[in-house]
Design a binder for these strands. Structure first.
Lengths: 247, 247
DNA sequence: GGTTAAGGTCAATAGTGTTGGCATAAGGGT
DNA sequence: ACCCTTATGCCAACACTATTGACCTTAACC
């Protein structure tokens, strides 16, 4: 059995599988991502993953404590991809904005995987690297520690929450999404003005809006608010004589 | 078998189960919520639900097309509960704030159920009622339709996204949560200042923050931003002579 | 009261995650 | 260059799961 999982770093003997493939954490995670993309959100099963790898399902338990553990590794992979596509410019607002968009985009690129992992905290290296990066940007911009922590918390939770929500709609199977859209058309768009005046009045505008993500809008309001807070904190430390008259 | 589900409204013959209970959609949904609360997020199974109701599992398919359909009904129940605890005051910001908090709280009261349903759109009556209410508040406050739709979209998605995220951490089993917190203590709090200076510097502040939800903070920034937008739109329509000098 | 079919039950199918035991070959030590 | 140890892949089994088709009882309508 697989009572203990050997950490990837200490793995010595790599015996090829009966069908010839040599396993590794990375290969398993990537194959799992492919399974999710090809077979939908419920398509990641130990048996199917084993078959795709040319290995017995139980072999997976030599690499991960269970499918739950594998799920966390998948989340870590998504975080890593986001970090890889991001580069710092030194301008804190632009950097935070880009980093948030990178995480959001990375999750939406694998919606089924995102749904499974977005609300989990993995505590693995690349996730920690993202956290460290965000705090570094904020503290580097001059936020006092207390403020930096508040903004950091709002920023990361906001980003993950929207990633999960938006991924959720993308992750639906084609039939399910078609059914949802048909439901919208047949339900919301047809509500009589008598009982639902406000939806009826804005139905056309709603239809154009609800397909897009609201993440950008909310992220911008957060960054605006943070910028004001920063200016205020800065003014407290270095008072401008010109503002002295109106305290 | 159950080739077609009879709508609750047209249900005539209510035959008691072998063990004597008389079924109904409402009873099934409530029992399902209890199962989720008592047995955890994976604890809602057809067998167990049937046993709790004193009925054969297959009987459920006379009431719902599948467990997925039941899940949607559960989401509808949570939305309904939120709406029931909310009352309008006429002040748009306070009303939106209270409504958002009500939905958030209603989901967090049944975290396991929230995780299953928060990212689904049910299209059922009470969910539509919430949407109609939000749009009514915004349009009543004087938002032009285009602005009202943008704020509505950000508001509802933000609320549902945070409901799902925050419910996710509450929904963990006691052992899983203990493991997570231990992971935090043993990983984040112990990171050396050499490799992770920013996390190390703020570890104490982080520990105090991460237990709370960031929903309130983000919701307030959104409402603030909306208020500014409203004032600006209002000023365009009814220009104040005092502001005429600085266009 | 007789008739119809709604709705509860039984049995079976095809899937799932996970584990204990076994066997084989990889790599380190000599 | 060989041997030994043990990591690692495989097999079989267990206890579950959702879902469906056939059957049968009894409630409700005429």
């Amino acid at each position: 059995m697989a009572k203990q999982v050997v950490p990837e770093a200490e793995r010595r003997r790599r015996r090829p599988t009966r069908q010839g493939t040599v396993l590794s954490e990375k290969l398993i995670v990537r194959t799992a991502l492919r399974m999710l993309r090809e077979h939908g959100g419920t398509g990641l099963t130990a048996r199917r993953l084993g078959a795709a790898l040319g290995a017995d399902p139980s072999t997976l338990y030599r690499y991960f404590a269970g499918l739950d553990d594998l799920t966390r590794a998948i989340g870590e992979e998504l975080m890593g991809r986001a970090l890889d596509t991001w580069t710092a410019t030194g301008e804190w607002r632009a950097d935070l904005r880009a980093l948030g968009q990178a995480v959001h985009a990375s999750y939406l690129a694998d919606p089924q995987a995102a749904v499974l992992t977005a609300s989990r905290v993995t505590g693995r290296p690349r996730e920690i690297a993202v956290d460290e990066t965000i705090l570094g940007i904020l503290r580097g911009a001059g936020f006092p520690d207390a403020d930096a922590v508040v903004v950091y918390h709002a920023f990361i939770d906001l980003t993950l929450a929207f990633a999960a929500l938006d991924a959720g709609t993308l992750a639906l199977t084609d039939e399910a999404r078609a059914a949802d859209e048909e439901m919208w058309r047949s339900t919301y768009a047809e509500l009589p003005a008598g009982t639902h005046p406000h939806i009826a009045a804005t139905a056309r505008l709603l239809a154009g809006r609800m397909n897009h993500s609201a993440y950008s809008v909310v992220l911008d309001t957060l960054l605006n608010s943070a910028a004001e807070q920063l200016a205020w904190a800065h003014a407290r430390r270095h008072p401008d004589p010109a503002d002295a008259r109106k305290p």
